[in-house]
C-alpha cells in the first residue's frame, strides 16, 4: 500500500515535470509522411523539450486547411510547405515574419525577400520526367532528353502530366515552361505536348506513380517521388530535361497568432541549421544552404545548375491568368479527342 502511494506520487511528479518541460507545437506539413518521424527525432536530439505534433496532408489540402482556419489558426508552425502556398498565406497576413539565426547563410533564392522574412527555405523539389523503361521499350519509345522531345509524335498517348488547375506540381511545370521559352513559345510547346498527353491528373505525384506501375510510359512529375519509387523497385528512369527544370522551394514559417512563439522560433532556427540541411539532403539534391548538398542517388549531380531562375513573384501574380488560359486551351475539350 505504501509502495503504491509512493509510486503514484512519483508518477504524478514526473508527469508534472514532463508537462512543464514539454512545449507542444502543432506543425502543419506537406513533407512525405515517411520522413516526418526522422525530422522530429533529429530536431528533438537538440531540443528534447519541444514536442512536435504533426498534421500532414498533401500540399493542396494543407494549404486549403490553413486558409480555412485563418480566423483561428490551429498551427504554430508550417514546416515543409511549398513557397507558393506560403506566399498565399503571407498575403493573407497569416505569417509572423522572423529572421532566424543563421539566415545570412541561406542562398537568397531560398528565403522570403523581405528584410525580416516571412518564410525561410529548406530545400527545393524539382520537376523530373519519370520514364518506365520496360513500357518504353515495349512501345519502342526513345529516351527523351529535353522538353521539346516530348512533343515528338512518337510519344503520342504515352505522356501523363498533372493538371495545373488541381496540382501545384502541374503549375510549376507550366510556369517554368513559360519562363524558359517565353509566353508564345511556351504555349506553342504546350500545344504540341497536349497532342501527346493521354491524360491530365489531379495530383502531382500521380503521373510518376502511373509510370511506375506501367499505366503510362512517361509521367511528368517531380524528382523526389520518382527517386522514392525507384528505390521501391519501379523500373523507372528519371529524366531531367536539358532546357531547365521548374522547381519549388519547400519552406518553414511561423503562423501568426501562435502563443508558443519562443518554441516556434526555436524550431525555425533549427530548420535552417547545417544539421537540418544535411538531413534534407538525404532526400533532396538541392538545399537552401549553399555548399552543403552532396549528390543524392537517382538525382543528377549538377542539379543546382539544371534548375531555372524561377521568378516566384511573376508566377504568383500571373497564376490566375495562366490557369485560365490553360483551362481554355486544354481543359474539358481534351477528352473529346
Amino acid at each position: 500500500m505504501k509502495h503504491l502511494k509512493k509510486a503514484l506520487a512519483l508518477a504524478a511528479l514526473m508527469a508534472a515535470v514532463n508537462a512543464n518541460a514539454q512545449t507542444e507545437l502543432t506543425v502543419y506539413t506537406a513533407v512525405e509522411a515517411e520522413d516526418l518521424k526522422k525530422y522530429a527525432a533529429r530536431f528533438n536530439e537538440d531540443h528534447p523539450d519541444i514536442k512536435i505534433n504533426w498534421v500532414r496532408d498533401s500540399t493542396g489540402v494543407i494549404t486549403a486547411r490553413l486558409l480555412a482556419e485563418k480566423e483561428n489558426p490551429q498551427a504554430d508552425v508550417v514546416w515543409g510547405l511549398a513557397g507558393t502556398s506560403l506566399l498565399l498565406l503571407k498575403n493573407e497576413g497569416m505569417l509572423t515574419p522572423y529572421a532566424p539565426e543563421g539566415l545570412e547563410k541561406l542562398s537568397p533564392k531560398f528565403r522570403d525577400r523581405d528584410e525580416t522574412p516571412s518564410w525561410v527555405g529548406m530545400d527545393a523539389w524539382m520537376a523530373a520526367v519519370c520514364v518506365n523503361t520496360i513500357e518504353a521499350e515495349k512501345n519502342n519509345l526513345p529516351m527523351p532528353t529535353s522538353w521539346q522531345d516530348l512533343t515528338n509524335p512518337v510519344y503520342r498517348g504515352h505522356v501523363v502530366m498533372p493538371n495545373p488547375n488541381s496540382s501545384g506540381t502541374g503549375f510549376l511545370d507550366v510556369s517554368a515552361w513559360l519562363q524558359l521559352m517565353g509566353e508564345d513559345k511556351g504555349w506553342e510547346f504546350m500545344d504540341g505536348l497536349h497532342q501527346n498527353i493521354s491524360r491530365y491528373t489531379h495530383s502531382g505525384s500521380k503521373p510518376c506513380k502511373m509510370a511506375a506501375s506501367g499505366e503510362t510510359s512517361i509521367g511528368v512529375s517531380f524528382a523526389f517521388r520518382g527517386a522514392r519509387l525507384k528505390e521501391k523497385g519501379a523500373p523507372l528512369e528519371l529524366v531531367f530535361p536539358e532546357e531547365g527544370l521548374g522547381w519549388e522551394v519547400e519552406a518553414t514559417a511561423i503562423v501568426d497568432g501562435t502563443d508558443k512563439l519562443e518554441a516556434a522560433q526555436t524550431l525555425v532556427d533549427w530548420s535552417i541549421t547545417r544539421q537540418a540541411m544535411e538531413m534534407y539532403n538525404e532526400g533532396y539534391a538541392i538545399v537552401a544552404m549553399p555548399g552543403v548538398a552532396q549528390p543524392v542517388e537517382h538525382f543528377p549531380a549538377n542539379a543546382e545548375a539544371l534548375i531555372i531562375d524561377n521568378d516566384f513573384g511573376w508566377a504568383a501574380s500571373n497564376r490566375e491568368a495562366i490557369l485560365t488560359e490553360w483551362a481554355r486551351r486544354y481543359d474539358g475539350k481534351s477528352e473529346a479527342k
Binding site: S58, G60, V61, T63, A64, L67, A68, S85, L88, N163, P164, N165, S166, S167, G168, R199, Y200, T201, H202, R319, L323, D331, G332, S334, E335
Partner: peptide, 25 residues
Amino acid sequence: PKVIGGQFDVLATDIYKQVIGQQKF
C-alpha cells in the same frame, strides 16, 4: 472521379480543383 476519372470533368472534381488546387473557396 478524382482517382480514376482522368481529366474527365465533373462538378465534384471541379470543387476539388477550385478549393484544393487553387484555394479559391
